[in-house]
């Protein structure tokens, strides 16, 4: 009986392994192997035409002690991440609005979401022209209405460039956050609100005590997407400012690209990638912890 059961179980496991093998091999080839090779590369001196030599932590030492651009890029990336709660709060406000009995809510929902499926490159081009010093929409409106005499150099200013890029990013991801939060809102059982109303709980308390806690999984997802977005906004920055002026809008991801393909320092770019990866892991874990663990799940 036991041996029959064991044979059956082995056959089942073999079948499961067969089904999993294609997906796992792709995951291994395209994810784990490059990641492993990247980590190895970060401890080596290598270029496409030079054999790799082991140099230990030299790249990390250079990065931490002798590379101002790395610190600029890291700071900007953290600012980018730090701003995502603002976008999430804004998206939550819109989600609450379109989830209410507002007339034409479906139309507003579509309008807000429309920006998300746009290609990021297109978003970058649109916003670059909106900010343009000479023919840009913002300068045109402000000059026409007499608010300013001289055009504001939005993307050419060390002070304005990063907030401008972040605003463009907000505009694009807002629709996505809104849909996630709206889905979360619609999955909250209505009887909880009805019971609260019967008990005379004011609207503010209903939001803080029912809506927000039950939205935790959706908010967690938005935060994770926000973190990922900050690490992958390469195209937006590349199109709008290319990291400039100076390195005012340089993100880790744009710096990695420049180190690798602009300066042919693939080994150093690998070390930067490792740091970005670690940062991503730490921040995701932190977000998980802050949202109560288990990816913000409500079930215990």
């Amino acid at each position: 009986m036991t041996s029959w059961y064991q044979r059956k179980r082995t056959r089942e496991l073999a079948l499961v392994a067969c089904f999993l093998a294609p997906a796992l091999s792709i995951f291994f080839l395209y994810r784990l192997l490059p990641l492993g090779w990247n980590v190895l590369l970060s401890f080596q001196s290598w270029s496409p035409l030079k054999a790799a030599t082991w140099i230990g932590v030299d790249h990390y030492e250079e990065m931490l002690l002798d590379d101002d651009v790395f610190w600029d890029a890291l700071t900007n990336t953290l600012i980018f991440i730090g701003c995502s709660p603002i976008a999430i709060a804004l998206a939550l406000a819109i989600a609450l609005l379109v989830n209410s009995d507002l007339r034409g809510a479906a139309i507003y929902r579509t309008i807000v979401f429309l920006s998300y499926p746009l290609m990021t490159v297109a978003v970058g081009i649109i916003w670059r022209w909106l900010y343009d010093e000479r023919g840009g929409f913002f300068n045109y409106v402000m000059r026409s209405s007499g608010v300013i005499d001289q055009p504001v150099k939005f993307l050419q200013s060390f002070d304005w460039a990063l907030p401008c890029v972040i605003a463009a990013d907000f505009w694009q991801v807002l629709g996505f956050y809104m849909i996630i939060l709206l889905t979360g809102l619609q999955s909250i059982p209505q009887h909880l609100y009805e019971a609260a109303r019967v008990d005379g709980v004011p609207a503010g308390a209903r939001f803080w005590r029912i809506t927000l806690p039950l939205l935790r999984p959706s908010i967690f997802l938005c935060i994770v997407v926000g973190i990922l977005n900050s690490f992958t906004s390469f195209d937006l920055v590349y199109v709008m400012t290319n990291g400039g002026p100076g390195h005012a809008t340089e993100l880790l991801i744009t710096y990695i690209y420049k180190a690798g393909f602009g300066q042919s320092r693939f080994d150093y770019a690998a070390a930067l990638t490792v740091v970005q990866f670690l940062l991503l892991v730490v921040l995701t874990m932190l977000a998980n912890k802050l949202s109560g663990g288990n990816a913000g799940s409500l079930e215990r």
């Binding site: 651009v69 050419q156 200013s157 060390f158 400039g244 002026p245 100076g246 390195h247």
Partner: peptide
Amino acid sequence: WPEFQSAMLGR
């Protein structure tokens, strides 16, 4: 370049 640019743009 970034340093030269910083000077040109008054930073």
